[in-house]
Amino acid sequence: MATTALVDPDTGLTQAQLAARHGLRVAGERPSLVEYSRRLWAYRHFIAAYANAKLVASYSNAKLGQLWQVLTPLTNAAVYYLIFGVVLAQNNIPNFIAYLTTGLFIFNFTQSAVLAGTQSISSNLGLIRALHFPRASLPLSTTITQFQQLLASMVVLIGIVLVTGEPLTWEWLLLVPALFLQAVFNAGVVLLVARLGSKSSDLKQVMPFIMRTWMYGSGVLYSVSLFERLPGWATTVVQYNPLLVYIELARYSLLEEAPLLNESLTQLWLVGAGWALVAGIGGFIYFWRGEQEYGRG
């Protein structure tokens, strides 16, 4: 009896059979989409802690520290107002300051998320190579960091809007679902550019130009009525531009008389929700498909 027990049951097996017998998995194998989502949920504490840490670290070298969270959007708004409000004097828009800052802050949420997201894999290679966690944690926490920044700038925005004479109405509450949809859209886009940016560093150079073009196509700095002069198909393209949609939703909820390109409010909400859904799910699947490649090379 004892002698039979001494015989190793694994002798005579090939390496592959041995691995299969003990249920070993191929190193660096990609989990299924469901399993991946489950693991990501288990890492929610890490995502939140990492987002907070990044927010703190981003101003750790500045003397004014966290004050820049408010100062940066304010300064930005001042510069653009000087050029588009005073020098170019766009008088056709009622309450231009509020119109401009709303557009600027909403656009900036996506812009800074995308710019940070491009590098969310490539700038964390040390962490990725050292520890094993679902890589989507990094782009997602980038999105959350930017969302926290957005909340600070929303306080500034609401101040500006109230000071410039807009009344406080129930419609302001619509800002909450609008920002939520935009945050989901951003998360999807950040996941997309994170994977693209992990392979080629060229994207980092191109991204600022893409974002600037996107800004001009979103009616941030001037009246959206300018887009009506474009040929019909171009106006349609601009109408469905997700950022224009989110900006219009914010303008609609905060401002009384802002000119809007989209007349139908239902359509605005539908397009906004549609973009959030498409980008969110698409970005997540696209990022997951590259899961085993991050940190290689």
């Binding site: 592959a16 691995a19 249920g23 070993l24 191929v26």
Partner: peptide
């Protein structure tokens, strides 16, 4: 092929 039990952690 390389087969592993669980997820190995690399400490570099």
């Amino acid at each position: 092929a390389i087969h592993t039990q669980g997820q190995p952690s690399l400490l570099g």
